[in-house]
Design a binder for these strands. Structure first.
Lengths: 113, 113
DNA sequence: TCCTTATATACCTATATGCGTATATAAGGA
DNA sequence: TCCTTATATACGCATATAGGTATATAAGGA
């Protein structure tokens, strides 16, 4: 399977779309994503790994936290994500994600301690 | 699953990409596609069904033949297929498909009888 | 009507994929 | 060093998916 079909395969899952759309607005760490999306940590981690492996996103460790952001090096990926962003009405749950993601630091665990 | 993720799911298979790219150039019937692609009839039929069900392609019966063509009503589908068309180097097998598809009627069974 | 041809689809199998539970790994701090 | 925390990953399971063989269905013709 080549890169393009792999890319579309990754886009065929709603959870990953949600992740990508949230990362399009903010760089976020795993715990923030889990909090915003109300999903389990292993689930989010596994999806992030797939996205990172194809270099759609990139990671950056800061202490014990790993922040993820969109990789802006691939024009095709960016274009396609923009296309999806224009079709957000197809993902009602993303409305809630964005609301909860307005202040992502609320879900930043260390911020609570 | 919504339409967009369904669409990407369909694009994550090489056989279906090949079909779509061939249909981008010519309206073709099943036997022509099978001949051009050197694939089995049930395989091609099943892929065509999936594409038709999501209205990415449309069918048109002419006697005992069913011709398939791209559905041009959805701008997003068209745009995406154009994007793929610009990345054909990722699908070496398509080079052969296009060669064999230059004269699709060669694989039109009735033309041989 | 029956036979032939084009195509769709049923049925089955092997493989892929999403997700949960549990645990391993990496980093920080006492 | 040991404990805690953040995150990755192993393992297992249920479901989805691609593709092959066989057959059903639709259309044409004698």
């Amino acid at each position: 399977m080549n890169e393009l079909t792999k890319f579309y395969k990754l886009l065929s899952d709603e959870t990953r779309i949600r992740i990508l759309m949230l990362l399009k607005r903010h760089k976020l760490c795993v715990c923030e994503l889990c909090g915003i999306m109300e999903e389990t940590q292993p689930k989010i981690s596994k999806h992030l790994a797939k996205l990172r492996d194809l270099e759609i996103i990139k990671d950056e460790r800061q202490e014990q936290y790993i922040f993820y952001s969109l990789n802006t090096d691939n024009p095709l990926y960016l274009l396609t994500l923009n296309i999806i962003y224009d079709k957000l009405d197809q993902f009602p749950i993303l409305k809630k994600d964005f609301e909860r993601g307005k202040f992502p630091e609320k879900f930043f665990i260390s911020a609570k301690s």
